[in-house]
Computed example of a mutant assay.
Amino acid sequence: MGLDPASLRIDQRLLYFMDQLEILEEKRQKFNALIEEGWFNISKARYSMGNKQVSALQYASEMDPHVYVTTSLSENGVVEFQCERTENKEELNESDIVENIGPTEGGLRRRVNVKQKETEDESTCKGQQQKDPQANTKTEKPKCQHQDPLKWFGILVPQNLKQAQTAFKEVITLSAEISTLQNAILATRMELQSEMKEKQRSSLN
């Protein structure tokens, strides 16, 4: 005698729930191992460079995040977390810039004598200097560009510090995956509980 469809659905849901828990345990173990590896490499770098050379004192005065965490809803209504890195966005934006060569204004242009244009430019520059003598002394503040945090600790950093950075980068991505999986497990557990309640009600009737 075969099982009823409700029992089959519950068994399949329970097996899926157990698989999710097993994957979550594996990811958590990897997460903890990467954190231990990262801190162990930082301690090695401090031993080789000196305790004061690898600390919060070397942090930049202005820092911009290289990773943003975004959220989205899946088809089942589960919140998913994704990590977006901005380290390569600036390079892409710079490569997309195209210089416009040629006249920007349409129509014919009147030719101006070169000597006459030079004298006009000199007169306009002198007039601006007389109006604002401090214009040439002021310099614009450069925009804060994304910088590799390893450069805060020097140009030639030990290999242990690079390995620590790689480990912590993977930790960030893995933490987003663990958060998404935890939300999926909670949703699966709620569905499993509702299906078991429905089966109990049908058996009582």
Rank of each mutant, 00 (worst) to 15 (best):
L150W: 14
D121N: 11
N88M: 15
R109D: 08
L161F: 09
A60K: 03
N93L: 13
T124E: 10
E122F: 13
K138C: 05
A176L: 04
T70R: 13
Q134C: 14
K138P: 03
E140S: 12
T139C: 06
K151P: 05
T166S: 14
K115M: 07
P149M: 09
K115I: 12
E140Q: 15
K169A: 06
V67R: 03
R85Y: 12
I178S: 00
S123W: 03
R85A: 09
E75M: 12
M63T: 14
K151A: 08
S179A: 11
K162Y: 02
L108K: 11
F153N: 12
T137W: 08
V157R: 02
Q163D: 12
I97L: 14
G102Q: 06
V79T: 07
I97S: 08
V69S: 03
K115V: 09
L174G: 05
Q116K: 11
M63S: 09
E91N: 07
I178W: 00
V157K: 02
A164H: 00
H146W: 15
Q82Y: 01
T124M: 11
T166N: 15
K117V: 15
R111L: 13
I178L: 01
K141E: 11
E105L: 14
Q159Y: 09
E91F: 03
T86D: 13
A167I: 00
L57P: 01
S55R: 06
G106N: 07
C144V: 12
H66C: 00
K138S: 11
R109G: 04
E99S: 04
Q165K: 14
C144D: 04
E90N: 06
Q129S: 08
V98F: 10
R109Q: 09
K126R: 15
T104C: 02
Q130H: 12
V67I: 10
Q163M: 10
T166P: 00
S61Q: 11
A135T: 12
Q165C: 08
K162D: 00
G154N: 01
E120H: 14
V157M: 02
Q134R: 14
N93D: 11
T139W: 14
K143P: 05
K89H: 05
S61C: 01
K126C: 09
V78Q: 04
G102I: 06
S61R: 11
S123D: 13
I155Y: 08
L174E: 01
V157D: 02
T70M: 08
L92Y: 09
E120N: 14
K89D: 05
P103H: 06
T70Y: 02
E177L: 01
N136Q: 13
D121C: 04
P65T: 07
V157S: 03
R109M: 11
N113A: 10
S95K: 15
D148R: 07
D96V: 03
A164P: 00
P133V: 04
Q130T: 13
I97M: 10
E87D: 01
E105K: 07
N113T: 13
K138E: 09
K169Q: 10
K141D: 04
K89W: 11
P65G: 07
Q58T: 04
A56R: 05
A164L: 04
L156S: 06
C83L: 10
Q129E: 08
S179Y: 01
N136L: 15
N113Q: 12
Q128F: 14
T104E: 05
N76R: 01
Q159I: 15
P158L: 04
T119M: 13
S72P: 00
M63L: 15
